[in-house]
Design a protein around this nucleic acid. Sequence first.
DNA 1: GTATACTTCAAATGTCCATTTGAGAGGAGA
DNA 2: TCTCCTCTCAAATGGACATTTGAAGTATAC
Lengths: 216, 216
Amino acid sequence: MTPPSARSRDTRQRLLEAAGEVFAERGFRDATIQEICRRADANIAAVHYHFADKERLYRAVIQYAEGCAGDSPPADIAPDTPAEKRLRGHIESFLLRLLDEGHPAWLGKLMAREMSQPTPALDVIVQEKIRTTYRRVDAIVRELLGPGACDDDVRACVLSVQGQCLFYRHCHPVLTRLFPGLPFGREQVPGLAEHITRFSLAGIRAIARARKAGVA
Amino acid sequence: MTPPSARSRDTRQRLLEAAGEVFAERGFRDATIQEICRRADANIAAVHYHFADKERLYRAVIQYAEGCAGDSPPADIAPDTPAEKRLRGHIESFLLRLLDEGHPAWLGKLMAREMSQPTPALDVIVQEKIRTTYRRVDAIVRELLGPGACDDDVRACVLSVQGQCLFYRHCHPVLTRLFPGLPFGREQVPGLAEHITRFSLAGIRAIARARKAGVA
DNA sequence: GTATACTTCAAATGTCCATTTGAGAGGAGA
DNA sequence: TCTCCTCTCAAATGGACATTTGAAGTATAC
């Protein structure tokens, strides 16, 4: 047994990157091993040597992606920041992850794909990533809604916030067709975050008021 | 030349319905003609006889779907209804179209699929359907925002509303995993519509206020 | 330097489907 | 009844890919 050589790790790495791109662009089924290997500049058989088969390659990509984008709560935000600012911070970093075309550009796309067209990998993703993000937003919204908030209201508000953000990823193809001139990339994130935050804060406060009125 | 017989139209029809289901469930690529024909109780070759090939079958399904779900603005709402009520009406009927598991259950799913994973058919859909829906919401939001509203604000608000609605379709697989007990089907539409309307009305008003403050 | 395990390679192999084919059923009109 | 269509059927055909194979190549330990 020899430890994996540098060359081997290299090929493996290149395959993961290339596969991430291709899976994100085309989806699991439409992605071909040939194209992945072409982009990774590797032999067809390399995939089967390093990952056994296409499905396990896909699983490895998902794991790799999860590792890349650490949990990344906007780390530069102190925990005692007011909830309004934390909401703004979350929305901005979430949008950035979704719209960024930079390094693991494919990460957001891949996740979005899993959400609307799940493979067995989704179960793992939900457990390990989505739940964490959800809890963070849950805490923020709960604080904004105030002490008496019922779980249903909290959940609905969290989903309203996340829904607004995810829209720009899921419906990107529609947006580019509906507004041919307008860009929806990382440049637009601050502006979008500003809007979604303002919109959502007002929404959350309205739910809080309605709740109190209803209970009283 | 004999006009298409009743039997023929029958088979064609059954194929369209079955294909709609299967395409919605599995996507264009993963759907197999075999399964479509099995569900339609038709022979494999029937697809090629009636539609020439898989792609043209798909196009026919899209057209058929567009025909089915007419433009369906909540028709029972008079045009002079206040904008708040019209917003509520739109949200409810839009959600219903997205979450309904009834007759053309696959319609919403198919559209959602096109949005995040477009085929060439998306261009047509945008032109013929999405733009229409967009314009309707645009008018409502514009009225709510008041006369001075700039186009950017209107657009952002429209997308916030649509984003919240579409979320429940696009992320349905995630929701069922994140909240295993909770249902997200047509039964839930009134409650969801209530929340999204309240949330969005407050959001839109906040944007209107911010606009005025910024301009003044 | 050579033996051994790790890694790459090009060329099969096999499978899953879309698509084609040619032979018939069924029905309307002469 | 005969004939010409329309429509259905079961069995090929063919292509696109994932996967396998066995022969090299390459590094590392000794």
